[in-house]
Amino acid sequence: MAGDRALDRPAGARSQRRERLAALLLEARTGNRGALDAIVAELTPVLWHTARNQGLSPQAAEDVIQTTWLTLLRHLDAISVPGALIEWLVTTTRREAWRVSAAARKDDLPGDDAFEDLPDSVLTPDELLVDDERRRALWHAVESLPKRCAELLRIIAFVPRPHYDAVAAALNMPMGSIGPTRGRCFAKLRLLLAKDPDWSP
Rank of each mutant, 00 (worst) to 15 (best):
E127F: 09
P119Y: 13
R105M: 02
T124A: 15
I65M: 12
S144W: 06
R95D: 10
R154T: 06
A51C: 02
R14I: 04
S200T: 03
G34H: 03
S144T: 12
A78R: 15
Q59N: 07
L24N: 01
Q66P: 08
L24K: 11
S200V: 00
S80K: 15
A166T: 02
P162M: 03
E116S: 12
F158T: 09
S101T: 00
T44E: 12
V159G: 02
G176Y: 05
D120P: 04
L191W: 05
E19M: 11
H163G: 03
A13T: 13
W98R: 09
L36P: 04
R52Y: 06
G55F: 07
A141P: 00
M1T: 13
I79H: 00
Q16N: 13
L128A: 08
P160G: 00
M1F: 14
L189V: 12
V167A: 03
E87S: 15
S15L: 11
V142Y: 00
D108C: 00
R94I: 13
R95T: 04
I155D: 02
W69D: 01
S57E: 10
G111F: 02
Q16E: 15
P110W: 01
A41M: 03
V122Y: 14
N32A: 08
V46C: 12
G176E: 08
M1A: 15
L189Y: 01
T93R: 05
T50M: 04
S121M: 13
L171M: 07
L123M: 14
L76W: 05
T93L: 04
R154F: 05
R33V: 11
P201A: 15
W88Y: 15
G3S: 14
L47V: 02
A28T: 04
R190S: 02
P180A: 07
L7A: 08
T124C: 12
R148H: 08
L85S: 09
L36M: 10
A141Y: 12
A170W: 10
A104W: 03
P160H: 08
R136T: 12
A2W: 11
A97W: 01
A150T: 13
I155Y: 07
P82C: 15
M173D: 06
L70E: 09
V64E: 05
T68H: 03
G31E: 03
Q16W: 09
A168E: 02
P201N: 14
A166F: 06
E116Y: 07
A38Q: 12
R148M: 12
G31D: 01
W139T: 05
T50D: 00
R14G: 10
W69T: 04
D120C: 10
L192M: 06
D196G: 05
A103L: 14
A102K: 09
P197I: 05
V40P: 02
A41H: 10
A157G: 00
E96L: 15
G55Q: 01
S121H: 15
D37R: 04
A103M: 07
K106C: 04
A11F: 00
D126L: 10
V81P: 08
V122T: 14
F158W: 08
R33D: 06
D117G: 13
D77I: 05
